[in-house]
Amino acid sequence: MQRVNMIMAESPGLITICLLGYLLSAECTVFLDHENANKILNRPKRYNSGKLEEFVQGNLERECMEEKCSFEEAREVFENTERTTEFWKQYVDGDQCESNPCLNGGSCKDDINSYECWCPFGFEGKNCELDVTCNIKNGRCEQFCKNSADNKVVCSCTEGYRLAENQKSCEPAVPFPCGRVSVSQTSKLTRAETVFPDVDYVNSTEAETILDNITQSTQSFNDFTRVVGGEDAKPGQFPWQVVLNGKVDAFCGGSIVNEKWIVTAAHCVETGVKITVVAGEHNIEETEHTEQKRNVIRIIPHHNYNAAINKYNHDIALLELDEPLVLNSYVTPICIADKEYTNIFLKFGSGYVSGWGRVFHKGRSALVLQYLRVPLVDRATCLRSTKFTIYNNMFCAGFHEGGRDSCQGDSGGPHVTEVEGTSFLTGIISWGEECAMKGKYGIYTKVSRYVNWIKEKTKLT
């Protein structure tokens, strides 16, 4: 034993070699072989497995989906700052455009905790909710729209109204504003409101030439003092309507412009014939205590009207009353817009006519005020429907199939267009061939041609 100890002390290297040989010859039971080890760690190889990531292109799944990435790591994937920024906006807080917040056709661009709407022409605001041009839906104005110097929408209202708090709607500024039905039992019968379409306001006024200088022999019209197929109006439903009495009662109609003036057809009036105007009328054979009678003290036909040349060209006249009318729910003026808007309103496509005229061709006159909704007829169809001249200051309205029309005794009465609950004068009943005849239409004086003249002559002093 002493000898062994001496050998170990003198030859430590020998001992180490012996131990190493023993270990190498022993069977290893701690580690699995290569094949079995792979069965336990069965993990798919990654895209760049075996390579240094710093030297390969980034992978979106590896960089940002398996674990949260930084902007720089995302930049490695896209290799483009702009594309990385677009991805980053949604990656950080989701897609803010998912709810489609942009209105009126706006395009949404996502941002971090926010979004941006790219608005089409005519709109602005956070969600493109603000109209900035009158060309689109009248700028959301209830009545009139004008573009300011910086191309912003400025709404306005006709006389007797003021802008509401929203700067879009119009509200009454006087007790009985024009064009409004205020009798409670008839307010439910107000005709369907007309909503502004998209309009090209630059070209809204037709490029028409008034044929002022045409000389033409007097034409022989049949029954051209021209509501057939209409309905009984309720008291106060058309408070701007008046009836004219002269040699015979209810020979023509008219509309209240203001307390002192009536507008009617020029062919209705004769110099030297006494005319009485009755406002607030409903049943011409009954006294309903809503009527107001006034005498006409002055007749002003349009300066281009000449019955000797043509009885229905420039067929418009103004009547001055001896005493002002007292405005109330049964006696209310009709609204008159400017030339541009009167023309736009007419193009809405349908209007209402009213009167006490004959209820059928050569038949009896109506006792109760009649009204009828009539569609506008395109000019080409209008011209083809008659052998008589249709001037540019006239328009056609009615039904091709016949059966409904204005008729004798309705002449001078109103053709009105309702705009968001307020009625505007767009025409004056003038003439036609018979009444409600198939293929024939009622012919009306186009008020847009005469609004400046009306307003100039009827100013209240």
Rank of each mutant, 00 (worst) to 15 (best):
R3W: 11
I284Q: 07
K457T: 15
L60N: 15
N393C: 03
T426Q: 00
T215F: 07
E165R: 12
S25D: 05
L372W: 15
L425M: 03
P172W: 03
C141T: 00
V377M: 06
I15F: 07
N258V: 01
F399I: 12
S25I: 14
C145M: 02
R191G: 13
Y444H: 03
Q2R: 15
F123M: 04
V269I: 13
N328F: 00
S354L: 15
I210A: 13
G230S: 11
D95M: 06
V242I: 05
A149K: 13
L367Q: 13
L41C: 04
E288S: 10
N452L: 05
G122Y: 03
Y330D: 04
M394P: 01
F176H: 10
S411L: 13
Q167A: 08
I429L: 12
K109G: 03
T194F: 11
S99M: 10
M394D: 02
L60F: 10
T186I: 12
L23N: 02
G106T: 00
F360E: 13
G439R: 10
Y47H: 14
N222R: 14
S25Y: 14
C69A: 04
F238Q: 04
K109E: 06
H302S: 03
E208Q: 07
S365E: 15
M8L: 11
L327I: 13
K168S: 04
P177Q: 01
F399E: 14
G253Y: 05
T225I: 14
G179T: 01
G50R: 10
A436M: 12
L189H: 13
A37L: 09
V296C: 03
S406K: 11
E82L: 05
P324H: 04
L23K: 02
S354C: 09
T287S: 14
P414A: 09
K457L: 11
Y201I: 14
N222L: 11
N127Y: 06
W453G: 00
N313H: 13
K126V: 07
P414K: 01
W240R: 01
S187W: 08
D223E: 08
A250E: 07
P175S: 11
Y444R: 01
D33P: 04
V242F: 00
G349K: 08
F360C: 10
A9F: 13
V374Q: 04
H361N: 15
P235H: 07
T209R: 08
A279G: 04
A307D: 06
N295Y: 07
L52F: 15
T85W: 06
K45H: 08
E27T: 10
R294S: 02
P333R: 03
V195D: 14
I112A: 15
F345M: 08
E66K: 06
N42T: 13
Q370L: 03
S220L: 14
